[in-house]
């Protein structure tokens, strides 16, 4: 039997497809090193922050609304006393609260005011103001699905940036600060 005929080019198709897949996996692995799969980009970026009306932690009869905060950019930091990662993030917030150049507003998520106050007393209070969302219903409108999360909201009430997970000096320097500076230059 004479089988030493020419090698059909089709025989290389599986190899080529496989090579492409491996290349793709390499990209994927590299990508995986630099990203945390938990972080889902928010669809609310560059959209108006949702309306809210939430009580202040220190004066529960006082309500803060979205309209109250319009006029200058601010950071909204979602935290809770039950949240471990928030404990990791806390010293960073303490260190950076005055360096941000814009108000840092605490958003106490699914927490009792009592626990939150005790937590802030124990660790220190980095926030210029804290609002509380005990039910977590308003947080859904923000697309919150875990704590900590941080939103940068501009003077017009548009969400410009969102970070999921603890803020670190690295994230602040590389992502958050440039965004804040950009907003300041814009206004």
């Amino acid at each position: 039997m004479n089988e030493v005929a020419r090698k059909p080019i089709g025989r290389f198709v599986p190899l080529v497809v496989f090579a492409l897949m491996v290349a793709f996996f390499v990209v994927g692995l590299v990508w995986n090193q630099s990203h945390d799969a938990r972080f889902v980009p928010s669809p609310l970026i560059n959209k108006p922050a949702p309306d809210f009306r939430l009580p202040r932690l220190d004066r529960p009869t006082d309500f803060v609304t979205r309209a109250d905060l319009l006029g200058k950019p601010y950071l909204l930091n979602v935290f809770a006393s039950w949240c471990f990662a928030c404990g990791d993030e806390h010293p960073v917030l303490m260190a950076y609260r005055d360096k941000f150049g814009i108000p840092l507003i605490g958003y106490d998520y699914k927490d009792t005011p009592h626990d939150a106050q005790a937590w802030l007393q124990r660790h220190g209070d980095p926030y210029h103001e804290v609002i509380t969302d005990q039910s977590g219903d308003t947080a859904i409108n923000f697309g919150v699905y875990g704590a900590p999360e941080t939103y940068l909201i501009d003077a017009q009430g548009i969400i410009r940036y969102k970070h999921i997970g603890p803020l670190t000096p690295d994230v602040i320097a590389k992502e958050l600060e440039p965004k804040i500076r950009a907003l300041e230059q814009g206004t």
Binding site: E3, K7, R11, P14, L15, F18, V22, V26, L29
Partner: peptide, 21 residues
Amino acid sequence: LVYLAVVIGGSLLLYALRAPK
């Protein structure tokens, strides 16, 4: 991944070069 690339890539290369008509 390297193992997969060597084992399967090598096999497919072998296939491309030597598979019967």
